[in-house]
């Protein structure tokens, strides 16, 4: 997957690129409208992360150009504003999703991967992780070929982990992903712990490995092996 990050705040763009970069994932950075169009002409990208407020233009104006080159490219809009009109115009002009600053990189990664799956593979994808298979379209999970019965929250949790493999995920970012940011309170972390415990147990019952590692006092990490 090739991703182009179009964001004028260099430090933020670099963080995004560093977080998303992996062996099979290329992530490039463009600091303004002009650079972005130049890069788009050179390389074919699968996904674009676009900041609306660019120094030399509105990020949304890039969308028609992107669609012209590859109508199947995924687009995620970043903005420092969260006016509903912004959200609507972004989605109407062809963007797939919308994130308001500040955001968690893990959330961004989960969203961009969901867009990619939806766009390039028609949503009919299977996320494979060793013995675990997730059929995204009908929300079915198999471990060693045996179906796993998961609650909605457990399923969301698993997909979130699979989108952020080998990354330390803070409890806060997971809670926000699962419940939204309005319910954060002292004991929410206990509920998260319960869900994680159950997910771990269910995977291991079907003969799967224990991939979820606790990072003490911080959160969790989903390991490759």
């Amino acid at each position: 997957m090739k991703i182009l990050v179009i964001e004028d705040e260099r430090e933020l763009a670099l963080s995004i690129a560093e977080y998303l970069k992996k062996e099979d994932q290329v992530c490039e950075v463009a600091g303004n409208f002009k650079k972005a169009t130049e890069k788009m002409d050179e390389v074919l990208f699968d996904c674009f992360i676009i900041d609306i407020g660019l120094p030399d233009g509105n990020g949304l104006d890039l969308i028609p150009r992107i669609k012209e080159i590859d109508s199947n490219a995924g687009i995620l809009i970043l903005t420092a504003r969260d006016a509903l009109s912004d959200k609507i115009t972004s989605l109407e002009s062809g963007a797939d999703d919308y994130l308001t600053k500040p955001f968690h990189l893990s959330e961004l990664a989960a969203r961009i991967k969901a867009i990619y799956r939806r766009r390039n593979l028609g949503g009919n994808t299977v996320i494979r992780h060793n013995e675990i298979e997730v059929f995204v379209q009908n929300r079915i999970v198999n471990v060693n070929g045996n179906p796993l019965t998961l609650t909605k929250k457990e399923y969301d949790l698993l997909v979130y982990f699979l989108s952020n493999k080998e990354k330390v995920l803070t409890r806060e970012s997971i809670v926000e992903h699962l419940w939204g940011d309005e319910v954060i309170m002292a004991d929410t972390f206990d509920f998260l712990y319960t869900h994680i415990k159950n997910l771990r147990k269910k995977i291991m019952e079907k003969g799967g490995s224990d991939y979820i590692k606790t990072v003490y006092g911080v959160g969790y990490r989903f390991t490759e092996q």
Binding site: E11, L12, S15, I16, P102, L105, S106, S173
Partner: peptide, 14 residues
């Protein structure tokens, strides 16, 4: 304030 906050958050996560 949002952009610096986004940078802080992203750097912490990295």
């Amino acid at each position: 304030i949002r952009t610096p906050l986004a940078i802080i958050n992203s750097k912490i996560e990295i």
